[in-house]
Design a protein around this nucleic acid. Sequence first.
DNA 1: AAATGCGACAACCGCATTATC
DNA 2: CGATAATGCGGTTGTCGCATT
Length: 372
Amino acid sequence: MGRAPCCDKATVKKGPWSPEEDAKLKAYIDENGTGGNWIALPQKIGLKRCGKSCRLRWLNYLRPNIKHGDFTEEEEHIICSLYISIGSRWSIIAAQLPGRTDNDIKNYWNTKLKKKLLGKRAPSRRMRGGQDASMTPYSSYLAATTASGSGGNNVNGAAAATSHASLSSSALERIQLHMRLQGIYSAFGCGAMAGNAPPQWPKLESPTDAVATTTLSAYHQPQSLVAGHTLSAAEAEQLNSSSGATYMPVPGSFEERSKLGFCSPAGEASDVSSTVEMSSEPLVGGGLGYVDELYDFLYSKQLAAVGGFQGGVPSLPELQCPDGGAVVGADERFSTWMASCDYVPTTGASQLQPQQGSNSINLQDFVLGYDQ
DNA sequence: AAATGCGACAACCGCATTATC
DNA sequence: CGATAATGCGGTTGTCGCATT
């Protein structure tokens, strides 16, 4: 037996809301609030609507301070970065964008951002079956490692390719997108098969997805994200020895790095290229260059603004904590921290709230650490 | 000018979680 | 402590308007 429906579907009106209905609902809530009972609300004000529908209408449309219209580039970057970090947790992402609703962001992602990423595949740069002059060092590395089948990647890559054939197109699309996003993550912070933290994959429900997820997880080993600018060299060393992960102290102020919309470790350019070239990336469906393009998409403007790679590989934006701290990332530490936090989407600037006595880390901001 | 396709957005649906009894 | 109700959330669908043929 499934649960009882929340309302009588025969008598409830569906479809778009009329201005009159909007006015009724808004007037009532403005005056009385929701009363903590959405189910009873429509009867009180004489609306033939389901309580859930009223709630949705209020939250997504009628609520004050809702922003409609185009997303700014900064908002796009935040959405992309958080999607990389936490997947389709739209309510959490929305909590970081005051005035935006989860529904808005979800729609924007599905209709624009995702296509921007999936559709940004420039034929001149990929799917050529070999290297060419336009390939970046990173692409070249990927091609080389794929061709040579280095280490466990080869095995897993073959498994991925096998599972690829049996996936539905929608599942495949999702996996490809996730791989691109995850690939960026790997490129920024992941040395080959290093680290112990399990990767954070967005939810994949179907059995076939599960197969693919298992396959992919085997060679995505996200590295640790740390509160870089607050970490001294000694602290970093201590953490490295105790956790087995790679932390690095990062010079430069948070303000400097956040100017561009992302925290960016102020490392040297040589550090960046060497790190990127060291990274490995599984390839499914001829995915060479995915990382490049998403990287370009996310960071080209930032890099241009600082005159190239001098700013180092950008990190992710911060999730605001009530104490003024912030957290970002997708590693085990982050997911642990997330699990120990309540997030409270509100009409204003929402916040992540560490629970009392929780295993929270006093994070200021994060940068990616790199393996040697 | 009509038909068709497509993108954007609003709304719905069902499941998971939380609160209450 | 279990059952039920309410709420929150993410995935999906429906509808409308614009662009293209």
